[in-house]
Amino acid sequence: MKSTDKSIGTTPNGRTDKNWGDSRSMSALQKNSETPRFSNEAMQEAERIFKRYPEDKRQSALLPLLHLAQRDFGGWLSPQALDYVAEVIGIPPIRVYEVATFYTMYNLKPVGKYHVQVCTNISCWLCGSDGIMDALTGKLDLKIGDSSDDGRFTLTEVECLGACANAPMLQINDDYYEDLTPEKVADLIDRLP
């Protein structure tokens, strides 16, 4: 097509939202000098995960192992954590980097104790997700994408979480909170331990 408008730029990799900005490129990964290792419990879980796949298909365990590592290593994956997962599986680290940077659920920098993820996609937007987001940015005194200095909260905007009939909704760590109002959201934040 003929592009006449200067403001139309090309997108470097198609995933250009703020969730996919510099913070997710490998060069911006935060350095963490210690190499983490799975706890005994996590190692047992890893063994169970490997058993789900044919013996010669260990890379299939990559997504579940990254979930496990993220949980075991404090909610995010450092470059050392990615290398460690590659070692556990027995695949080149590049295979792990590719995957860790492709999927949005892997946090490549630290997140707060409570990762508040607000859906602003169509059904939630129609049902008032703007008001939910405003309530949160006000209550937490955070901009979208930021974490609080005390390490308690990270506020993220996310795409449809598959709970559209109970919009607006958000996810905090593993749990969904649905049929929200700005008042309910403020109350929810107050009641977090």
Binding site: T11, R15, D17, N19, W20, N121, I122
Partner: peptide, 24 residues
């Protein structure tokens, strides 16, 4: 416009028409 933002975010990036097009 909200939906377009979604598709731009979700394009896997391997086909040029989709990678560039969803961005445009």
């Amino acid at each position: 416009a909200r939906l377009s933002r979604f598709y731009r975010h979700e394009s896997c990036g391997q086909c040029t028409p989709c990678r560039e097009g969803t961005g445009w």
